[in-house]
Structure formats: C-alpha cells, structure tokens
Design a protein around this nucleic acid. Structure first.
Lengths: 217, 217
DNA sequence: TTTAATATACGTATTTATACTTAGTGATTT
DNA sequence: AAATCACTAAGTATAAATACGTATATTAAA
C-alpha cells in the first residue's frame, strides 16, 4: 500500500483543518502541501508537482478560482489528478468543472468513505462523481429536453430537417441540390422557409439554433 | 395504496411472462395489457389510455420500435408515464430515450426493488435512471471532453474566439465590424483565418464546429 | 370537397461571403 | 537585431446567400 500524496487547496482554514483530520484517519493519505488560493497552489506545484498525486481543489476561492486552477493544472501537469471539492450542487458548476477537465467531483457534505473512494477511483484513472452529482446531471438533461418541447423546431417538416442537417455539415445549396437530386432553387426556398420559421437572420444563426436546440447532435 | 395499472410492451413472450411474475410479487401492480410491438401498444392505448398509469417499454422491437412509440405516446398521452426497459447500456440509446421524452430508464438486469422504485418514482413525476445508466452518462460527458483536447480550437486567439461567438449569434461581418469598431475587411480576414485553422468550408460548418466542440455553449 | 400545407421550381436583384494578394504596426521571442 | 505572430486594413473578383414575387402538383386535414 503506497502513500498517496495530497495537496489541499481551500481558502477556509477551518475547512482545511477539518479535511486534514478526516484524511489522517486513513494512513495511506499524506498531505504534503496546503494552499489558500489558486496562486499559492500553482506556486506549490512549480516545485512539488512531481511528487504530488492528488489535488483536492475548492471551487470558490479568491485570487484565482478552482476553474482557472484546474485548467492550468491540466495543461502543465497532466498526470496530476484533480478532485473538485465544493458545496455547490448546481448544474452549471458541475458541467463547468467537467469541461475544465477535473477527474472527480465530491460535495463537501460527503463522508470519509466517499472521499477515500473518490481519491482511489481517480488515481485508478476513472472519473468519480458523488451520487448527488449524478442525479443533478441527469436532471439537467431532462430539463434541457423539456425546454425543447413547444418550440418552433417541432414545426419543421422532414425535408426541412434533412436540409438543415446538410447545411450544418457545411454543404452549400448547390451541393445539397445535387445530393437530393433537386433544383438549387428548391433548396434556396427551403432555406428561406427555415429561417422564417425559426426566426433567424442567416445561416450562422440557423445552424446555431438547431444545434443548441439539440435537433442535431 | 392504490392500484397501479401497467401496460407491458416487449416482443419476447418469455420476457413478458417473467416480468409478470416479478410484478405480481407486489400486489399494488396490475398488468392490464400486453403488446409485442409498437403498433399493438398504440392500439391498446387507443382504447385504454385513460386507465393506464405506466407503460413498460422495450426499445428493440419489430414493426415500431420503442423510440417511435415513446414519441407518439408523449404527444398523445402526456399523462402516461413511460419506463424504458432494455438491456442496452450504451450512451446513444440512453440519450436518445431521454430526448424522446421517456420518464425513466432501467436495465433488464435490475431486480424487483429497482423496478418498483422506478415505477413509483416516475409516477411521482420524478425521473428515474438506474445507477449504471447514470454512470454511463457521466462517462460520456467525460469522453466528449477528452475529444475536445488537442484539437484546433486551442490555437484560436482571443480575437478569433470573440468573433466566432458573434458570428454564431447571427451577426454579419459588417455588424461585427461596427460592434468592435474595426473595418469590415478585418472581420473578413478573421473569418478566413478561422476557417483555415479549423479546416471548414463555410460559415455553417464553422458554427457547427465550434458549437459541437463546446467552445461556445 | 374545399382548404391548407408541403415540396417542387423559376426569375430578378441585392447583399454577404469567400478567395487571393499585399502590407503596416506593435508585441514577443530567439 | 531579426524573426514571428496577432491584429489591423485594403483591392479585386467571384461565388453564395438572401429577399422578393410567382406558380404547380401532391397530400393531409377540416
């Protein structure tokens, strides 16, 4: 059983102390550094990145927040695992952290077992998300879908959907006409109708609209 | 404790029989109908939708598959809860079912407890997804993000990102020029450079590219 | 059965986007 | 000091998209 070296990053001293006490219960864990903001954390890593295995990272911090830190770490120290630690259970935070390349995400009301298994899971190169977090993700996917209802996209015809798909793939009207064996004029009319139905001004906004509304993936 | 009326839709007789036996263990559940394909299921609902509470729906079926059935049901019978039941644990299936408006999704290797709580959860107007499914979702989000790395988008300059954002919002070059107090020609150069860097042919593909790569949300 | 919607197609005109070339300036790097 | 890069800008020319109007055959819905 090898020692796991941990860097603790949180702006609240009390929370850092608490985490230290919790982590001490598992003798495998060793806290080799602490930082109270992003700048300090990156300074520590400048010298000690090689021996650091896991970074426990708070999201909301002064100076340089967790998002920015995670971005930098991912680029400069790709081997270092980052476990986001936060009280925020909102979708925007979670997706943003995932986007930024965090390996795991645990809520601050987790217990020692959760934390231990999170650390071990991400060291094993698997993502870890506490169950509450998963629930939020699924929920948000559901809600996004609800938004999709009742909107203008339902009024598109099959032909229009077909054409909008080809437009998004970068085909110009003449190419679409060839593909579907139709006149270029017909495709142009479909474009006009599509823009009118979806109330957009040009091709760019049209593509943007359909992609955001998830008609096309 | 009210009776919950269930419609069972699966093309394999053996699976239907098995499900009936499993569901019989809970006296609250009552199977009021069966169907071996989508067409039969919709025919049953034509007459009995009012008294049907939950539809247990297999995805892979002949004639009319689960996706299509779910679509129709959502439109015609919005109060009827649909629980997708399948052995497929792949991301494409799951996201597609969510898109189509299914209320819950359970794998066929679940046990009675899972099934019962799934049914009760969706009747309570909450989404239900078995834990394995959640894991797949999170994983797919992670993987999408990994794809994003190493791609051409990292090479874009701040100005280019700013402009591509405005393009996606439907602004034409002259409008972007006004907004940023630059020459229209400058914007045109940026567009050219963007298309060259991202190896796309036109505006449509450009917008499609950046949205899919999640540079813009 | 009339109505409405869909898909098809052409004409004309204007506006945008795209292609190719050249070039100055300021900041950064080697 | 020289080279590189990001940003800026212009000239010229063609291709594509957009904005109008008009029209017809088919199909779905009232």
């Amino acid at each position: 059983m090898e020692t796991i070296n941990i860097l603790l990053v949180d702006d609240h001293t009390l929370i850092r102390e608490g985490l230290k006490l919790i982590l001490k219960k598992n003798k495998q864990f060793k806290i080799i550094g602490e930082a109270s903001n992003g700048v300090e954390a990156l300074e520590f890593l400048e010298k000690n990145a090689a021996k650091t295995h896991v970074m426990l990272l708070d999201i909301t911090m002064p100076e340089l927040d967790g998002f920015e830190v995670a971005k930098v770490v991912k680029k400069k120290y790709p081997d270092l695992k980052v476990l986001a630690l936060t009280m925020h259970n909102e979708e925007s935070y979670i997706t943003k952290m995932i986007d930024v390349g965090v390996h795991g995400y645990v809520l601050k009301d987790s217990n020692l077992d959760d934390l231990s298994s999170a650390i071990k899971t991400i060291l094993d190169d698997k993502p870890y998300y506490s169950s509450d977090v998963s629930a939020v993700m699924i929920n948000s996917l559901m809600n996004k879908d609800k938004q999709k209802d009742n909107n203008a996209i339902d009024n598109l015809t099959e032909r229009e959907k077909e054409i909008i798909h080809l437009i998004s793939d970068g085909y110009k009207s003449s190419e679409i006409a060839d593909k579907l064996e139709l006149s270029t004029r017909t495709i142009e009319v479909h474009r006009r109708n599509l823009m009118k139905k979806l109330e957009v001004k040009n091709t760019a906004e049209l593509v943007s609209y359909v992609l955001k509304s998830k008609l096309i993936s």
